[in-house]
């Protein structure tokens, strides 16, 4: 499997394919229950569902060339809704919420496009389709 970013959703014009993320990727909900207790000790709970939105955190190690592609993608669509097909084949629609997006050159990769490796951590908030 690969990871695919598509934007702008829904009239997508660009697909960008990335390799699978590193282990340690996160997937968590955004709901937040509020628990209140009355004076008679009755417990009341309120839930902010937040549209059942979830947050994904993905760490990618990319060739320099692919990092340049992802950089161009972010520059073009930082304010657009994005479709993400993750490494499990699940489709998500939301936003890349990472700000700033930081590309770090981690080492040399002779023979790989760009001869260097870069890593970037992407946070994504969206709804599973």
């Amino acid at each position: 499997m690969t990871v695919r970013f598509g934007a702008p959703y829904p009239t997508m014009q660009t697909f960008s394919y990335l390799p699978n993320p590193e282990f340690g990727d996160l997937e968590g909900g955004r709901t937040s229950p509020v628990i209140m207790r009355a004076i008679d000790n009755t417990r009341y709970t309120y839930v902010k569902a937040k549209d059942l939105r979830k947050r994904l955190q993905l760490q990618f190690t990319l060739t320099r060339a692919k990092a340049l592609e992802l950089r161009a993608f972010i520059v073009s669509y930082y304010r657009s809704r994005v479709q993400l097909v993750d490494h499990l084949g699940q489709k998500w629609v939301g936003y890349i919420t990472t700000n700033p997006n930081e590309f770090e050159t981690t080492g040399r990769a002779a023979g790989a496009p760009g001869d260097e490796l870069q890593s970037i951590q992407i946070e994504f908030e969206g709804i599973k389709q």
Partner: peptide
């Protein structure tokens, strides 16, 4: 392609 610069732009 997950290595080269290859965005699919329509």
């Amino acid at each position: 392609d997950t290595c080269n610069y290859s965005p699919n732009v329509g």
